[in-house]
Nucleic acid binder design. Structure first.
Lengths: 198, 198
DNA sequence: TCGGAACGCAACAGGCCTGTTCCGATATAC
DNA sequence: GTATATCGGAACAGGCCTGTTGCGTTCCGA
């Protein structure tokens, strides 16, 4: 959306981009849907003229793609002495993400309207879900290689059991009051030990 | 919405109610949002006059409450010889529910717009989530009483780990191609045995 | 200093949705 | 048979959103 050649003229105010993205996050966090949000509402909330938004983004889809980028924080370093510690750290980061109500609402809205925003949905999977899932798989595989985790388990299934409780809470919106590290530790401990009476 | 006293006059066609509810499920299953759906669209899809819908439901909220009732199937009998078998049966029923794309889409849409439809959200929790969660807790507690499950585990956490993978798939919409019983068995087996190398 | 671009503000037509009101036709209870 | 309630179809005003255009103003690079 930048002009082809930048010769002269007034520069775009970068605060306008930020204000628009923040406005979308605020509004979606307050219960708005992606298709229901109007550019008028976004512009008003951002304190920006509707014209400035049209200048930057041809469609709402393009704006939403930038919103998705804005909430996609890089994966932190998860290296720890043991796979168990790495899994706890991995889940803790995931829980922290779900505690951000605006980001969680954005993802919920996105998943509910995946059919209406296929490109947004694809980017979500490719840039957010897949890298984190791969990181989780790597941790589990390293745990197997180190003799810490049983080699006969299904890596994907273990990952699902570990992150399932967190993603389920993300999906249903009940993520308040979770202590990231403590909750992660309890999940990992349970899945490590199993529930069967010996 | 029924008239106070039924004296005389033409009866309401019960097929109209069904057609409206089916129309909502179809449309939401195709990606529509609850707030985005219009009564015009619903009436057209149902092959019914908009007038008939207004006669039955004052607001869209009331219509959606009936839709929620329509997808709320009763809990089947889950009694089995062991808690493990009961848990497998319980999860299998849950997976079967998520395979119904229209019902899943309805729940996703509902959760994404919980703020805009508080009554609908409350009813969802009270009439769908809570009974199933309680049933799951009961199974786990019986397993503990029978000496089948460790008594020192947190019942709620075990439930979350078991249903988490399924609810997470429900939330993200990727439930196709799951065999209910086989998937349930693999989850329960994993959570029973744990992943730790002995 | 001067051209070019972004800025806010306003207006416009076109479309869709709502909520309500008519109408004539049809079905049902008393 | 008559009163009553439903049915489908149509119309209406009012509101909101879109996409575009125009305007005077502000900023910035050449």
């Amino acid at each position: 959306m930048q002009p082809a050649v930048r010769l002269a003229g007034r520069r775009r105010d970068p605060r306008t981009d930020v204000a628009a993205i923040e406005a979308v996050l605020d509004l979606v966090g307050s219960g708005a849907t992606l298709s229901g949000l109007s550019l008028v509402t976004i512009a008003d909330r951002a304190g920006v003229s509707r014209n400035s938004l049209y200048r930057r983004w041809k469609t709402k889809d393009e704006l939403y793609l930038d919103v998705l980028d804005a909430i996609n924080k890089p994966l932190p370093d998860l290296r720890r002495p043991t796979a168990r510690d790495e899994l706890i750290a991995h889940l803790a980061v995931l829980i922290e993400r779900t505690l951000d109500n605006r980001a969680s609402s954005m993802l919920r809205a996105l998943l509910a309207e995946a059919a209406a925003f296929p490109e947004l949905h694809r980017r979500y999977f490719d840039e957010i879900v897949t890298p984190r899932r791969e990181a989780s798989y790597q941790i589990i595989r390293r745990g197997i290689a180190a003799g810490e985790i049983r080699p006969d388990i299904d890596v994907a299934l273990v990952n699902e059991v570990l992150v399932g409780p967190i993603l389920a809470r993300l999906g249903s919106g009940g993520t308040e009051g979770l202590d990231p590290v403590q909750t992660s530790r309890r999940i990992v401990d349970l899945v490590y030990a199993g529930v069967q009476a010996s």
